[in-house]
Nucleic acid binder design. Structure first.
Lengths: 221, 221
DNA sequence: GGGATTTTGTTCTCGCGTTCACAAACTTCT
DNA sequence: AGAAGTTTGTGAACGCGAGAACAAAATCCC
């Protein structure tokens, strides 16, 4: 999996950098909409909320897209990062589990604007089938395989309760999906070739509560 | 801020460990519900999806709650982690921005079960006021200060569009909130004493797309 | 054209986090 | 009771990432 042969692309982008590229992309879009055509690493770093040295180092993994003494062309840099991230092409996505969260995700405009197209909404519950959410009709979970093959879907989103998540993941992998974004609060077991990313809505809140508690106990006024 | 005098609590829990404690908590709850009363670090690590050595080191920052040759008492360890995280007390929370995402968050059962109580839902849009979501009535954003004072709220959740987020954050801080969980896709500027945590729904998807693209270009079958 | 100025790209150092490996401590079996 | 077997807790090695600092390259001004 992680082994790389030397004939492959030379640039090996660190995972920490990859995780920040979407943030830079968003900051560049904001700058561009605001009418900025050129920005320094200092400007962009401020907009992205990071250190300017770190930003420059991150960008250097992609190539030399800046001009010394001047800065970066906003639209050009944005295009280069988007291309590197795969955001210039269209990614068909399926969402499984159309509860409150699935609804919110289906309607989330940030997906569409980043190149993700929701091609299907699936749910195991018969009563939801036929319902239209965000312009897409909810279909039976059993249609997954056909949809994946028809649209060439590589990415699946799980927004089901925890109890159903592993089964959904197994079916996704069986249907040919190779990347899963999991919103269910459970650890998924998948094969080696499959990438799983997890978003835990309450985890961040718990970390904040921890720090609140420490503040309260450390300084008893 | 980060300076620590020596008379304070001896145990200095690394940030990376704090971020994993909620995961352990969840895994322990699952084990407990499944009837497991004692587990080894190997078992718990598997349930949490981490390395067992890392798990043991993480737990060692909290204290010695295991028994050599035996393992950990599930409920006892769960209580100890919950206490350390502040999950044994009740945390009043306000959610601002009751769109699709705000709806989903208000209904998310994971908040309540982790000790978070949604005391108010706020929105700037007049037309939403009075609407009842998850048993809580939606109130005007201008009520924020009164609500924060009344319930002693320390934690606020922002689920507004990006354009409104900074204003909401400023108002929150002015009202006395010291921890913010931001779901809006924008970088927030806040004072030193305020903690901000950010969840970007599309960021994870973009990282997955990047790896998909790399897989596709690296091995052209 | 040439020096001063600005800003990028990169090297170097430091610290944190992960993992290995093992001693300490507890249980079980004889 | 004592030896064998388990499993925790931790010391030490290692690797990655963050940030400071600087050299290279472009623009600006005269």
């Amino acid at each position: 999996m992680t082994a790389r042969t030397s004939h492959e692309t030379a640039r090996e982008i660190p995972e920490a950098t990859v995780a920040r590229l979407p943030v830079y992309l968003r900051a560049l879009s904001t700058l561009s909409e605001g009418g900025t055509t050129v920005c320094s690493s200092e400007d962009l770093a401020a907009a992205a909320g990071v250190n300017s040295a770190k930003l420059r180092k991150d960008l250097s993994y992609l190539g030399s897209y800046g001009t010394r003494g001047v800065g970066y062309d906003v639209d050009y840099l944005r295009y280069q990062i988007a291309r590197e991230m795969g955001a210039t092409r269209d990614w068909p996505v399926v969402i499984v589990g159309i509860g409150n969260l699935g609804h919110a995700l289906a309607n989330y405009s940030g997906f569409r604007s980043r190149g993700f197209r929701v091609v299907a909404l699936l749910d195991a519950d018969d009563r939801r089938h036929g319902e239209v959410v965000a312009g897409v009709v909810v279909r039976p979970f059993t249609d997954l395989r056909a949809i994946v093959h028809e649209h060439g879907v590589a990415i699946g989103v799980i927004a089901t309760p925890a109890a159903a998540a592993q089964d959904v993941a197994d079916t996704m992998v069986g249907a040919g999906i190779t990347s899963i974004l999991n919103f269910a609060p459970t650890v998924l077991n998948v094969g080696l070739g499959v990438a799983v990313s997890k978003v835990d809505l309450s985890k961040e809140l718990q970390v904040l509560a921890y720090h609140e508690q420490r503040k309260a106990t450390a300084e008893p006024a």
